[in-house]
Design a protein around this nucleic acid. Structure first.
Lengths: 237, 237
DNA sequence: CGTAGTTACGTACGCCGTACGTAGTGCGCT
DNA sequence: AGCGCACTACGTACGGCGTACGTAACTACG
């Protein structure tokens, strides 16, 4: 059997080290940590095999002894930061607990802005992901419903948080690679939008534009959206 | 002022063609259509500047006369398929209309599996996106709330659909680049999950695994999730 | 003690986005 | 009418990427 098997495998099923041969100089945790450090500091695209290898202090191709494909490096990264989820003894109030989970997930994603882009159900089987899922299910012990429904609740909240934070950060991440500032970009788009709307083709958008909504409180919007999802599963009052 | 300005601009503000010089051989619609054709057939990553140019029958760098950056090609693609949204006279029942919108969006994304990956608020100002937004607002005329709330509703539904279809398709898109089949991959992960869960570290996951849920009807799950979001804005009954 | 399986890693291939330079074209101006 | 310039077209080249492959050193197992 060749080193790079042509047979389906999840990276977690691969033994971390083998018996024979020279001692391995690194381990998955080191590698994931290095990749996370780079992605946090310079963005996800900077976390290339070459960069990560350099950060570890080894040759590029040596990395492939630990990580068969780039995709698996991503999986290691997601698992690593999933370990940062704080777990606690469920309070018995599943609404409060799930709200807390969502807020923590948002904080996690703001600490690691590349995380929303990598969030995928494909990575949902990593050790830390399983631990996190088990915790959510624990929080939902007081929820009256099947496990199927509980999974749907968890998925909807996770999806919402991922989308929301992803949108919050998309402009910023994008701005990194632009020759002008994020403020300029935003102003530009607002100006363009104003011009389009002024043309009269979009009466409701024009009305919305004119509506005096006051300053937008992103925290409040986030909280409202979470509550609406929870309400979809069990209305308050 | 040089051809590639270092000043903020949205591609939509650039005049499509200038007065001077030779006639332009192509236009944005052609280019977007070519890119969409390639992405539909071979995946998003195949829609490179080189491929699109070849599909059009011109040199790679000629594309840059029409599309200043790769990112803008993406924006053209999203706008092009956004034009496929069917618009109709609102029925007066905003719940029914928004459900219909969501289902159409899902169908659109299944026709163009790369779309979820490109969905970004950054592209929300394109001509077809504005038309779509205006349509949604029309459907929500019968909804009692501020435009701010209406935007939140639209954003939540769009986010949900994007996430849901993205998850549906992530495995398939991923399978394209793997040396083994999607079925094998799935079976592999299930087997691994079973092994982990059998270890006893995840009692609730084990219980969930054991729960006899019958076959999962993805259509029904999707519909339920949509209804839950709508319920979050105005419970039925 | 050989040998098979591993680690380490340099080289090389074929992609990618795109900066830059050059040549040709035809509108708008004087 | 004719000049100039903005524009199109596009070849070449650079620095990145993921990763296939080959080679040399090393060690645990038979």
């Amino acid at each position: 059997m060749a080193g790079r098997a042509a047979v389906p495998e999840v990276i977690w099923t691969r033994p971390e080290r083998a018996g024979r041969g020279p001692k391995a100089a690194y381990n998955r945790a080191d590698i994931a940590a290095a990749a996370v450090r780079i992605a946090d500091a310079e963005g996800l695209d900077a976390a290339s095999m070459r960069h990560v290898a350099a950060e570890l202090g080894c040759g590029t191709m040596s990395l492939y002894n630990y990580v068969p494909r780039k995709e698996d490096l991503y999986e290691l990264m997601v698992d690593a930061v999933s370990g940062e989820h704080e777990l606690w003894e469920p309070s018995g109030d599943w609404r409060a607990d799930m709200l807390r989970v969502a807020h923590q997930t948002r904080a996690l994603m703001r600490r690691h802005p590349w995380l929303p882009r990598l969030m995928s159900p494909v990575y949902g089987f990593s050790p830390h992901a399983l631990r996190y899922l088990e915790h959510c299910l624990g929080c939902l012990d007081s929820f009256d419903g099947t496990y199927g429904t509980k999974f749907e609740l968890i998925a909807m909240l996770n999806g919402l948080v991922t989308t929301y934070v992803g949108n919050e950060l998309a402009t910023a991440e994008r701005a990194r690679s632009l020759p002008w500032s994020e403020e300029q970009e935003g102003a530009m788009r607002i100006a363009y939008l104003g011009g389009q709307v002024a043309g009269g083709a979009y009466p409701r958008l024009a009305a919305a534009f004119a509506e005096d909504s006051g300053p937008i409180d992103l925290e409040a919007v986030f909280e409202r959206m979470l509550l609406r999802v929870l309400d979809g599963f069990a209305p308050r009052g």
